[in-house]
């Protein structure tokens, strides 16, 4: 087993009103590892992602990243280290800004790059990394396809040079044909940059084709966690079996 990059221990989240979104969740993601988090709506999978990237401040339990304990309030550097890609590529990008402005703003805030020229080069590299034409730097998200927007969102997550990526249903709003390329992109990011990832999805087939290990979450609890092959070939928990039986597949 590789060294642990992210360790969550005993995470619990209770929303105002008493709804328990997470109950005593333990999760470990190793260096260069992609872990799938599978569950249905309301299972708490997105909440777990939000705790990890620092969007959900009130929780109990501990989070350790690269050997360092993470507080609910994070430094800019800690924020930069763990980035997130969201489900809806239409909502998560400021429609008034060009791709260059979106990326450049992050580089400036995180003091990455020396001068405008250097930042421009970095942005061009980012575009190539997510397989978008460099010329698209000067266009706005309006008018782009869903797949292109999601690539821009990924470029933005990569801009601050993170070590860890949380992807929350990044292909749920996309066509299957577009989804394939985005999944391949996540796989390449691990191969080329060693980026560890938590890949949140309700789609078992997608998780199977990308992840090393899979955690199944049900009503705020992780009910089963194992290597991908084990989950798909010998599911232990009833709920996992139910999910597998429900998932559509080609003959």
């Amino acid at each position: 087993m590789t060294r642990s990059e992210l360790v969550a221990e005993g995470l619990s989240v209770t929303f105002p009103g008493g709804m328990r979104a997470l109950r005593d969740v333990n999760l470990r993601v190793g260096e260069r590892e992609i872990v799938g988090l599978v569950g249905e709506s309301g299972s708490g999978k997105s909440t777990l992602g939000r705790v990890i990237v620092g969007l959900q401040h009130s929780y109990s339990g501990t989070l350790t990243f690269a050997g360092e304990a993470l507080d609910p309030r994070r430094t800019t550097k800690q924020r930069g280290a763990i980035q997130m890609v969201f489900q809806d590529p239409y909502a998560s990008l400021d429609p008034r800004m060009t791709v260059w402005q979106l990326l450049d703003e992050l580089l400036s805030v995180h003091r990455i790059g020396s001068g405008r020229e250097d930042r421009r080069h970095r942005c061009e590299d980012l575009m190539r990394r997510v397989h978008l034409p460099v010329a698209m730097l000067d266009s706005r998200p309006v008018g782009m396809s869903g797949g292109q927007r999601q690539r821009v969102a990924i470029a933005r997550a990569l801009a601050v040079e993170p070590r860890f990526l949380v992807a929350d249903e990044p292909t749920a709003a996309l066509d299957v044909s577009v989804q394939a390329r985005i999944i391949n992109l996540f796989a390449d990011l691990r191969e080329e940059m060693g980026l560890s990832q938590l890949f949140i999805s309700h789609n078992l087939a997608v998780v199977r084709s990308l992840c090393d290990r899979v955690a199944v979450i049900y009503r705020g609890e992780i009910v089963e966690m194992a290597a991908t092959d084990a989950i798909f070939e010998a599911p232990q928990h009833d709920y996992t079996r139910q999910l597998l039986a429900a998932a559509p597949d080609l003959p």
Partner: peptide
Amino acid sequence: RALLAAVPRIRGPVRRLRGLASS
């Protein structure tokens, strides 16, 4: 054929998906 190659599977061997060219 291209459309089929993009579909991730629950059963069978795991293989790298093939994305479609821009729609």
